[in-house]
């Protein structure tokens, strides 16, 4: 058994990342030939105790996707960290918190209350909520606890590399495997994608004029989008200028603006603040009233600018005003 061991794991995520391994298509065969997959919940049955039984650092690399929200996910993250030589945050959720991270706009209590009591579709007169421990017929099953905030993987355990994307593209995954297997690894902590914004590889780049002054914003569904032209002069928010490249500009290729899943470049501390700065500075209006009229069509700045990055933003999550 000299083949390196590889694990895939899945925390708070949609599962799409695990599927991407299949997106490697025939290359998957090459990978499988060279490695042993020891953990892959979406495809293989595997027990916690089996994993625990492995010696520490026995797994060469673990590709963990999903954000960390529950105590169980935390435990798995810690366990996998211990068993792995390289822990790779795989995909936007593990990298930045991802879509689940948007929950950080709300208090945990509010989330529980809404989902178990107040949502229109809920019938729960007893106001029952999931408990971490219950007693039933003499047994005491445990349920994971929901943590106060959604975290990116590196906010829970040390991470060696990041593979960005929602989900990461096969090319990047393939390159990561190649690097891992060949040992030609970049410095620890690197994001395994180019450190330059998406526009660099966007086919629409050349169509952007040098004098954009926004007078109106549209959401993608509000307008018939020109398939060739840069989205920004069309008044559609595109996160491309504030987002790492490496995806091959797939969304613009499908006539949708970039939503920022690769996260910011290394030179940026807060992706949302940066795109906000750039878009607003380029508004045409001068009067407060007119400025706000134009900006009105960005109805949800948090959801727009921090779609993937709220959990790793400078403000990280909603502050609790009730205690302030």
């Amino acid at each position: 058994m000299s083949k390196p061991k590889v694990a895939f794991y899945w925390c708070a995520s949609c599962g799409g990342c695990e599927e991407t391994v299949v997106d490697l298509a025939e290359d998957i065969l090459g990978v499988v030939e060279k490695v042993d997959i020891v953990l892959w919940p979406v495809a293989m049955d595997f027990k916690y105790r089996d994993l625990e039984a492995l010696p520490d650092r026995a797994i060469t690399a673990t590709l963990l996707n999903g954000a960390i929200r529950s105590s169980e996910q935390e435990e798995m993250a810690v366990l996998l960290r211990r068993k792995s030589q390289y822990l790779i945050a795989y995909g936007s959720c593990a990298h930045l918190g991802g879509i689940p991270g948007l929950a950080n706009q709300f208090e945990r209590e509010a989330i529980l209350r809404f989902n178990y009591e107040e949502a229109p579709s809920v019938v729960n007169e007893a106001r029952t909520r999931p408990q971490t421990v219950t007693e039933e017929e003499g047994r005491r099953p445990h349920l994971p606890e929901l943590r106060h905030v959604v975290r990116s993987l590196d906010q829970v355990v040390a991470v060696d590399y990041y593979l960005p994307g929602c989900p990461p593209t096969p090319n990047l995954t393939r390159a990561a495997f190649d690097a891992l297997l060949s040992g030609r690894l970049p410095p620890k902590g690197s994001v395994l994608a180019p450190d330059i914004a998406l526009c660099d590889e966007c086919p629409r780049k050349a169509s952007r004029p040098a004098d954009v002054a926004f007078t109106q914003f549209f959401r993608p569904h509000q307008k018939v989008l020109d398939e060739e032209k840069c989205f920004l002069p069309q008044g559609v928010v595109c996160m491309g200028p504030a987002t790492r490249s490496g995806c091959g500009a797939q969304c613009p290729g499908g006539n949708m603006p970039c939503t920022g899943c690769f996260g910011p470049t290394s030179r940026v501390r807060d992706q949302g603040a940066k795109i906000l700065s750039s878009l607003c500075a380029n508004l045409g209006a001068r009067e407060e009233k007119e400025i706000n009229r134009v900006l009105e069509n960005i109805p949800d700045p948090v959801g727009t600018f921090y779609r993937y990055g709220l959990a790793s933003s400078r403000l990280r999550r909603r502050a609790d005003l009730t205690n302030v």
Binding site: L276, C280, A281, L283, E288, I291, L295, P301, F305
Partner: peptide
């Protein structure tokens, strides 16, 4: 301009 949107955010 930045301030207007940032404050809302």
């Amino acid at each position: 301009r930045r301030f207007q949107l940032l404050r809302r955010l």
